[in-house]
Amino acid sequence: MKLLETVAGLWQKYYYVYLGGLWGTIWLSAVSVAAATVIGTAIALMKLSGVRVLDWITRVYVGILRGTPILLQLYFFWILLPKAVPFELSDTACIIVALIVNASAYVAEVIRAGIQAVDAGQTEAAKSLGMRPRNVMLRVVMPQAVKNILPALGNEYVTMIKQTSLASVFFVEELMTSYKTVQSATFLALPSLIIVGFIYLILITVLTKALDLFERRLQKSERR
């Protein structure tokens, strides 16, 4: 009971720090989800283009990003980017770029798998009707692939939100960083951790429920 009281007290005193952290987590997630989706789609299409060089490049890109720890990648961009660009770059900017690049590899794989899961007979039928490759992809394959892709993409987004917590290593403002801030000001580690954990739990549960609802509506439209 003592712990609960401490937690409540901490929240009353420092709620603005946690809300600031929540806001940071939300916008870091939103920006990296949006950008990673666009870049990931482009990479998936490059991979499926049938052009050997493009396939090779995307293979290396996805291979490296999925084959090394994300924390390593965050350090890599945090060290490299400020040296590589001629202008001033904040830690936050470096970390966002790293998060986007990392997520784009996973998104690309989800989209590629979703497209390839569409029955090959669909492509053959469209080709046999004399449809151009572009129309085969946009009018026959893609509309069917979306139904495979969206649920898997939702899971990917949830993972991405949780991974933004790694930005706390670089003191980029987000939830995990607000834990650290309060903890170092009060020396109360466990209560602060409980508050942050609770906020994450609510955020992700709400999002997961929303995705479930969306998925169910999608399946309903499939059955019409």
Binding site: G121, E124, A125, K127, S128, L129, G130, M131, R132, P133
Partner: peptide, 12 residues
């Protein structure tokens, strides 16, 4: 080939 396929129907 796209143009010619339009003249060759196929049923699977």
């Amino acid at each position: 080939i796209v143009k010619h396929r339009q003249k060759i129907g196929m049923v699977f």
